[in-house]
């Protein structure tokens, strides 16, 4: 397989950023960069169902949480499992997986869960599917809190090795972006968008609505599970409420701001919201100008984000990018590539 020059250049650039950034900028910026890349994976995985297929799921964070806990359980050391999770079934307590296999397993676990949940739910549309997937998120939360043999319940799940480094996250982001861009700009991607734009017309021309939605949902869930594992290995310790409505709201804000029908838009949304939150967070702690002291205003940054969100909904409901893509010359090559493959078949 011949790799187009532009893709090779992008990979090299990503590698330089991933390995070089820690030597050039301080810890704080590395952490911001890592979180931007990590959130990009999560928002991209969300965009597949919510943006491209028109199934507005509010339960995506349920898959992220499931992935985080699955990966956490798999990668604890055997001694830690004995100490922290004494009632873990024998099947799981005698081994410990390294980072990569644990992450893949977390993705697969989330994808299987998505098949089970999506098979019935992907028949619903509009607010029905939003409310139903929200129900799924709540069920996941209740199960995580109560299945304490596996999750330590509402207490903090801790001891996960801090294996998530910038190269890992950027690598996974590249994989996510590659898979999703191949998927979204393929014949199958056009079916997804047809289902989103006019469900009845799409089914009238012979597109299986359920199949298109389910596949988008399951692939999205796989990357959500992967992102969950990365998150778990980044935080080291977390609790069921880490993966609940606050995170849902945050990811949706990023997706909607960037534009729901665009991969590059999703990333732009993440970058904008992340930078804005970092700036506002400094502001929130309170500061002094001359003799005038502004007290700490906790919650102020969320209020600003909320108003921004409403303004976007009113004045630019398609977000910054809408359906457009920022491709840096990558798209025509990959389009040609697809075209050739199509002929070969």
């Amino acid at each position: 397989m011949r790799i187009p020059l532009a893709i090779a250049a992008a990979i090299v650039l990503a590698a330089i950023v991933a390995f070089g950034a820690p030597h050039v900028v301080g810890d704080y910026f590395v952490r911001v960069l890592l979180l931007i890349a990590l959130n990009s994976i999560l928002v991209l995985s969300l965009s597949l169902s919510n943006g491209f297929t028109g199934v507005f799921s509010l339960g995506h964070v349920g898959f992220i949480g499931a992935g985080a806990y699955a990966a956490g359980i798999l990668s604890l050391t055997v001694q830690q499992k004995k100490a922290l999770l004494p009632h873990l079934p024998d099947l799981l307590n005698w081994f410990s997986l390294p980072f990569l296999p644990a992450t893949l397993a977390a993705g697969l676990f989330a994808a299987i869960l998505a098949v089970i949940v999506g098979y019935p739910l992907m028949r619903l549309s509009g607010y029905f599917v939003s409310v139903a997937t929200m129900g799924f998120l709540i069920i996941v939360n209740v199960v995580l809190i109560n299945a304490s043999d596996f999750t330590r319940g509402a207490r903090t799940f801790t001891g996960v090795p801090l294996a998530t480094t910038l190269p890992w996250v950027i690598g996974w982001l590249a994989v996510t972006l590659l898979v999703l861009s191949r998927l979204v700009y393929s014949p199958f991607g056009r079916r997804m968008k047809a289902v989103r734009d006019d469900t009845i017309a799409a089914s009238a021309v012979g597109i299986s609505v359920l199949r298109a939605r389910l596949l988008a949902f399951v692939i999205g869930a796989f990357f959500a599970g992967v992102g969950g594992s990365l998150y778990a290995h980044y935080l080291g310790s977390f609790s069921p409420n880490t993966f609940y409505f606050a995170m849902t709201m945050n990811l949706i804000a990023m997706l909607v701001l960037g534009g729901m029908g665009s991969l590059s838009g999703a990333i732009i949304g993440v970058v904008c919201v992340s930078i804005l939150s970092e700036l506002l967070r400094g502001f929130e702690r309170g500061f002094t100008i001359g003799d005038f002291t502004v007290p700490a205003l906790f919650g102020a940054s969320q209020i600003v984000l909320g108003f921004l969100f409403i303004l976007i909904m009113i004045f630019r409901p398609k977000g910054i990018m809408g359906d457009r893509e920022l491709t840096f010359g990558l798209s025509r090559r990959s389009a040609n590539h697809n075209h050739k493959e199509g002929k070969d078949r």
């Binding site: 509009g126 607010y127 949706i252 909607v256 102020a300 969100f309 409403i310 909904m313 009113i314």
Partner: peptide, 28 residues
């Protein structure tokens, strides 16, 4: 009112944003 005729999802998202604002205003 400004989004009254917008699609279901837009309106649902707007109500989520209102929630977010009011809750954080309460915290503030």
């Amino acid at each position: 009112r400004p989004i009254r005729n917008a699609p279901d999802v837009t309106r649902l998202l707007t109500s989520l944003a209102v929630t977010y604002i009011l809750e954080n205003l309460g915290i503030l």
